[in-house]
Design a protein around this nucleic acid. Structure first.
Lengths: 217, 217
DNA sequence: GTCTATACTAGGATAGAC
DNA sequence: GTCTATCCTAGTATAGAC
């Protein structure tokens, strides 16, 4: 928006505001992942970028603001990854399986953002936010609900058509997303991690969640 | 240890050091749950207890120290809840089912501690801890591994006897515990929550994790 | 053992140069 | 737009009274 695309873009040496923000977001996500919210200072983030606070405070009002932006980015990735599949052709069970695998892949490939997002839930409760931030915070909660509802809807469909067992859909989604989100805790890319390996993990997650751990007797 | 049990205990009006610590731990767990680690100050915790910082700093060296103690307490609860079942009689599948339900119950009944414990993983990565704290931190990691291994062992048994599907046990435990730990995020005791209701949730968790979401065709 | 008072500083945030 | 310099509060931690 700040800078319309033009043939001269190729000559640009400075970043647009959007790009500048994105770069900060990456650095912040990385820092939050490694040190956690409390132990990460704005200077830490600046350090990752090789710049000073000034640049960050030009784009973000506060540390919380920065964190919220990272969190929001993660939610957008998630919604983006699964909503297309949810609305596509195919049986609910098959769509759900693809959604699980897609979500697992996003978690593994965009780990810093996803990890921040998982931490983020902690901050939803922190009362120490200003009135205007409360609005952003609320939008984040809404996004998370929307995201969760994408799953709830497909699960509901699946139950109706007999593909899925008759759990309460609202409930069933909790352990489902819980198992996925918890990946942010244990997953570490192995040195030279291949996409094949990641796909294997994603497949196993879907298999586990859909068919369970017990042998069908 | 500070104060041996004696007949005169009934007359005591002051708390033993152990009891004093426990009370602080409860208050701290509550505060960490409500505001998160970053937003919780030592004063916040003191406020919950209706005392001042002095009392807390008499028992705990630092805020991190206090947090570690809460975390440790949570891990002890967990190990305590499942290890007995793991070592009891019965088929692995049945023991695993009971372990899942027991763990779910602990999470619901001791939510503040469990929530702190779930947050805690974040801090394992924060490099900003002193050398002596690093030791405590390490013991916490070890405890978590021990705890996880209790599940791994039972799952391994279950696979060997054909009760469970042939996942890698180390892997299978991740979504299993992930789904359980994620309860700390969504579970809130409903007003007038009954134990029956909690047991229903625990049962559903076990059912979901062992039999999966898909209908057995 | 707990309180009051106080020291100390990390780090969030802002102003103004460039 | 980014940097340098500075302000300033919140909150950790300690010393010493009681």
């Amino acid at each position: 928006m700040e800078q319309a695309a033009s043939p001269f873009d190729l000559l640009r040496t400075t970043l647009s505001k959007e790009e500048g923000r994105a770069e900060i977001l990456d650095a912040a996500a990385e820092a939050f992942m490694q040190k956690g919210f409390a132990a990460t200072s704005i200077n830490t983030v600046a350090g990752v970028l090789g710049c000073t606070k000034g640049r960050i405070y030009y784009q973000f009002e506060s540390k919380s603001d920065l964190f919220f932006a990272v969190h929001r980015e993660a939610m957008l990735m998630n919604i983006n990854a699964v909503s297309g599949i949810a609305n596509s052709e195919g049986k609910p069970l098959e769509r759900l399986s693809r959604m699980i695998r897609a979500q697992a892949m996003v978690i593994m490939t965009r780990l810093p953002f996803q990890r921040a997002s998982a931490q983020g839930l902690e901050l939803h409760l922190a009362g120490s936010t200003t009135a205007e931030q409360r609005e952003v915070l609320h939008s984040l909660v809404v996004m998370r609900e929307q995201y969760e509802n994408i799953f709830v809807d497909v699960v509901t469909e699946g139950i109706q058509c007999g593909d899925l067992r008759s759990f309460d859909p609202k409930f069933a989604v909790k352990p489902l997303l819980g198992a996925l989100n918890w990946m942010t805790v244990w997953y570490r890319a192995a040195p030279g991690e291949t996409e094949e390996h990641q796909r294997k993990i994603a497949d196993d997650m879907a298999d586990f969640l859909l068919s369970g751990l017990a042998a069908s007797s």
